[in-house]
Amino acid sequence: MKPRITVYDYLRKHWLLVGILTCIFFAGIYPELGSKNGPLHTEYSVKYGAVTVIFLISGISLKTESIYETFQQHNLHFFIQGFTFIFIPIFTQIFVHLLNYFGVNQWVLRGLVTVACMPPPVSSAVILTRAADGNETAAIFNSVLGSFLGVVITPLLLLINLGFTTLVPLLATIIQLVTTVLIPLFLGQIIRNFTGFRGHTLPLNTIGQCALLFVIYTTFCDTFETPEHHLSAADVLASVFSVLLMQIILLGLSHAIAQCFQKHFTIQDVITIIFCSTHKSLTLGIPILRILFHGYSHLSQISLPLLIYHPTQIILGGLIVTQLKDWVQLHRSKRPPV
């Protein structure tokens, strides 16, 4: 007879998803608190606070030898970057062509194409990979690599797919990545190797996930605060449906294709692929859209898919984290003892 699962047990197992939904609820009630112009000063508390904490914890937790091993996983890096910058833009062009038959707003469709050209984010994909027991080191490496590549590749993709291009602030992007990702990682490795601290006395994983929840909360505050000028209910519904369907298909395809290369990828690698190859950056995307379409009366329709895509990828990620973690545990239990 199977033991009964109580509400407490369920909430404890799926607490990250519950936390995400709670963040959305409170952001909807009072978005002014966590918005860009709010009292929390998210331009500093998120960028140089929560994100820095996430990668400092990663630096403390990661084994140095695993970092060296990750650098050698060329097949994994090539797959993730190829899926992000080649497969998704091609897939989106086909997807948009099909949506065109259903009368979806042309500017919303352009917004979807713009989303497809964006690089991966540097926080959500990493912390979700960590929460699902995936290859965290590879997630960090590919998120940072994708952000650097996006400085060059994203404008080229926009030129090819839309006929628009823009100069991404190269120096500012590099400084932000170094200060919020690389320096915290380096400090974490110094703490680990020179002090012997491994974080066993502190719930580092829980602290990192709480930092992610703060990022999620502020993201939704900005989403709810964004004015929806010139947006009809049909545009909003079409964008939500299109983005949700697009992400579900991409998650399924990334998993299915990665599974075809079982000889090259472990289950932890597949989890990294699922998150890192399908997530898109809002931080770089919004400034690019502001530059590209400044003065356009249809800027709100173009921006809408990206504004929806970012929180949606977090919600879908939270929904599948527990299942992926159980998948890893099941695989480990089937391994023959060494």
Rank of each mutant, 00 (worst) to 15 (best):
M1A: 09
W15R: 05
W15Q: 02
L16E: 03
I20N: 04
C23G: 04
F26W: 15
A27E: 06
Y30G: 01
P31I: 08
E32Y: 12
E32W: 13
G34W: 13
G34E: 14
G38M: 07
E43S: 12
E43K: 10
Y44W: 14
G49Q: 06
V53D: 05
L56G: 00
I57E: 03
L62S: 09
L62W: 04
E65I: 13
E65S: 15
I67V: 15
E69G: 10
H74A: 07
F79R: 05
F79C: 08
F79M: 02
Q81N: 10
I86A: 08
I90M: 12
I90D: 07
I94M: 03
N100A: 11
N100W: 12
N100K: 15
N105G: 02
N105T: 08
Q106E: 13
W107V: 03
G111K: 03
V113S: 06
V113Q: 12
T114L: 13
V115N: 05
M118W: 02
P119A: 13
A125G: 09
I127M: 12
L128E: 02
T129M: 00
R130L: 14
A131K: 01
G134C: 07
G134E: 03
G134P: 09
N135H: 11
T137E: 05
A138M: 04
A139L: 01
I140Y: 02
F141T: 11
S143C: 10
S147V: 10
F148W: 07
L158N: 07
I160K: 13
I160E: 05
G163C: 01
T165R: 04
T165C: 00
T166R: 00
T166I: 14
P169Y: 12
L171F: 10
A172F: 03
Q176M: 07
L182S: 08
L182F: 11
P184T: 08
R192A: 06
R192T: 04
N193V: 06
T195A: 10
G196E: 06
G196Y: 03
F197G: 01
R198Q: 12
H200C: 05
T201R: 11
L202N: 09
L204V: 08
T206H: 05
T206M: 05
I207C: 04
F214P: 01
Y217T: 07
T218Y: 11
T219L: 14
F220K: 03
F224S: 05
E228D: 01
E228W: 13
H229F: 12
H229K: 15
H230I: 05
A233F: 15
A233L: 15
V236G: 00
A238Y: 12
V243C: 06
L244M: 14
G252W: 00
S254V: 11
H255Q: 14
C260Y: 09
C260W: 07
H264I: 07
F265A: 03
F265G: 00
F265D: 03
V270M: 05
V270P: 01
I274H: 04
S281A: 15
L282E: 07
L282H: 08
L284F: 11
L284I: 15
L289E: 09
L292G: 06
L292F: 02
F293E: 03
G295Y: 13
G295I: 15
H298Y: 14
H298F: 11
Q301Y: 02
L306W: 08
L307E: 06
G317N: 05
L319A: 11
I320Q: 07
V321W: 04
Q323S: 13
K325A: 10
W327H: 13
L330Y: 13
L330F: 07
P336F: 10
V338E: 04
